Computed example of a mutant assay.
Amino acid sequence: MKLVWSPETASKAYIDTVRSCEVSKGSSVAELVSAMAAGWNTQLVVETWSKGGAVATSIGLAVATHHTGGRHICVVPDEESRSEYVDAMRKSGQQAEVVVGQPEVAVEGLEGIDFLVVDGTRNDFVRILRVAKLGHRGAVLVCKNASSRAASDFRWRSVLDRKSRIVRSVLLPVGQGLDIAHIGAKGGDKVKGKSKSKWIRHIDEQSGEEYVIRT
């Protein structure tokens, strides 16, 4: 088994996130991430968050798991962050499971992650990626704020074990940068010949630029 793309589910999540984030400025990242999480029918979505952060991406991930029937878990470092996060999500009409603890320790305790979002502005984002236990169907890894100084020299191969097969990766100029990697299913045989490409069309509301992403 592997992650299978559904453009219909991706479109529904994208539209619902647009509606949910109408009051949030610069929500283009949330919409795109939501579409990807829903389109790949992800069942365990994990993100990290800390006090003072925006919740637009969290809203998008919550919307995505509504469409897939999966779990959305947010890892926060302390009770103060948990309280602020839960309150912000409640005001948006969404919710997520919240785990409190040191991010890399909490993430390491979760198995079968097939969609993981980390923040490139945090010093621990590389450690979190290294300990993540990905699902056998493969996974999609997202580093947001990838244009930050902390993430500027980041390379996916440096944080993944040798058994992980990077199907494709892309750095998109959306928000403060989205660095995305699609990890292949474990134990899956390579398919001979060219595989059929799939596309995501996204328009940045702030700049008006259109991005067409091949998956």
Rank of each mutant, 00 (worst) to 15 (best):
K2T: 13
L3F: 05
E8G: 06
T9E: 09
A10V: 13
S11E: 15
I15D: 12
I15Q: 13
T17V: 08
V18R: 14
R19V: 03
C21M: 10
S24P: 06
S24Q: 15
K25T: 10
G26L: 14
A30D: 01
E31R: 15
V33Q: 10
A38L: 07
A38W: 08
G39F: 13
W40K: 14
T42L: 07
Q43E: 07
V45W: 02
V46T: 03
W49T: 04
G52D: 01
G53T: 08
I59L: 06
G60C: 07
L61H: 02
V63N: 11
T65D: 00
G69T: 08
G70K: 10
G70M: 09
R71K: 14
H72K: 01
H72G: 05
D78E: 06
E79K: 05
S83N: 07
Y85L: 15
V86L: 09
D87G: 04
A88T: 09
M89E: 04
S92L: 10
G93D: 13
A96P: 05
E97Q: 13
E97F: 07
V99A: 12
V100C: 12
V100P: 12
P103E: 07
A106S: 12
V107Y: 08
G109E: 03
G109H: 00
G109D: 01
L110I: 13
D114L: 01
F115S: 02
L116G: 02
V117H: 01
V117L: 05
V118Q: 01
D119V: 00
R122K: 12
R122H: 02
L129M: 06
L129N: 07
A132E: 06
L134Y: 06
H136L: 05
R137D: 00
A139C: 02
L141M: 05
C143I: 14
K144M: 11
N145Q: 09
A146K: 00
A146C: 04
A146Q: 03
A146R: 00
S147W: 10
S148M: 09
S148W: 04
S148G: 09
S148R: 09
S152C: 02
D153P: 00
R155K: 12
W156V: 03
S158M: 04
L160Y: 12
L160R: 15
K163M: 06
S164V: 05
R165S: 11
V167D: 01
L172Q: 12
P173D: 04
V174E: 10
Q176P: 11
I180Q: 12
H182M: 13
G184F: 00
A185W: 04
D189G: 08
D189A: 15
V191P: 05
S195R: 15
S195T: 11
K196M: 11
S197V: 14
W199T: 15
R201C: 11
R201V: 15
Q206W: 08
G208E: 05
E209G: 02
E210D: 03
E210T: 15
E210F: 01
Y211F: 14
I213R: 01
I213T: 09
R214M: 07
T215C: 13
